[in-house]
């Protein structure tokens, strides 16, 4: 068989995909694209950093600033500072727990 004969024969060897090939492929690609969508949610690291910063600032504010003027205005008059701090800290920890729960719940839902 010479070169020209081979060319004539090989020109008849092209194959065609099935009619639903592209549709079925695009369905798979769309499914993969959905799985790759990231939730519009800040990363845990960033959330924790912000919360830590807020706690430090709140503590500094609570323990370092003189609140006598507030007592005069009767805003925090009867509340003990340490108790107030404990309540704020507990609320913040509860918030962190909620944020983490939400984050992992979203991650799990999107990856399945």
């Amino acid at each position: 068989m010479n070169e020209d004969q081979a060319k004539v024969l090989l020109k008849k060897s092209a194959l065609k995909t099935t009619e639903d090939f592209t549709d079925s492929l695009m369905v798979q690609i769309d499914a993969k694209s959905i799985n790759h969508i990231q939730p519009g949610f800040p990363s845990v690291k960033r959330v924790l950093s912000i919360i830590t910063l807020v706690v430090v600032l709140a503590s500094a504010l609570l323990f370092c600033v003189d609140f006598k003027f507030l007592s005069e205005l009767e805003i925090v008059g009867g509340v003990h500072r340490t108790k107030l701090f404990a309540v704020v800290l507990f609320s913040v920890l509860l918030g962190i727990n909620h944020v983490l729960k939400l984050h992992y719940s979203l991650k799990y839902t999107l990856s399945n």
Partner: peptide, 21 residues
Amino acid sequence: DTLAFRDLVNAYKDVSLTLAC
């Protein structure tokens, strides 16, 4: 643009099948 990718698939799917086969 997935429609553009669909066009790429349609342009090359038969050649790709022949080579894979």
